[in-house]
């Protein structure tokens, strides 16, 4: 039996849901970033799977989208972690529940 597209999509959906779980249920800013990175990786897996299983695959198209998506995710991670460090310097905490100065 050769695996079909649905297997890859379900694995990707599971990975996305685990990322969502990490982003929604944890209180530590770094955990939330890890969850977001995991959701982006699941999206990349979807890009590659759809490219590979397309009836007439265009050779570099899906790979290009995945490469650009990885580059943008790397930029997001760098800025996000820099913000975590900046917030930690000001408030001495990384718990997102305690960062409520702008709350009305």
């Amino acid at each position: 039996m050769t695996p079909n597209l649905q297997v890859f999509l379900i694995v990707s959906a599971a990975l996305f849901s685990i990322g969502l779980l990490a982003a929604l249920s944890r209180r530590h800013a770094i955990f939330i970033l890890i969850g977001i990175e995991m959701m982006l990786a699941a999206a990349n897996l979807n890009f590659i799977a759809f490219w590979r299983f397309a009836p007439q695959p265009k050779p570099p198209l899906g790979v290009m989208i995945a490469i650009f998506s990885i580059a943008i995710a790397a930029a997001e991670a760098a800025v996000g972690l820099a913000m975590v460090i900046a917030v930690y310097r000001h408030y001495r905490t990384t718990n997102v529940d305690q960062l409520d100065q702008l709350k009305g």
Partner: peptide, 12 residues
């Protein structure tokens, strides 16, 4: 936080 878990399971 169980709310996040419920949302994640619903999305999956």
């Amino acid at each position: 936080n169980w709310g996040g878990a419920i949302i994640a399971v619903a999305v999956f």
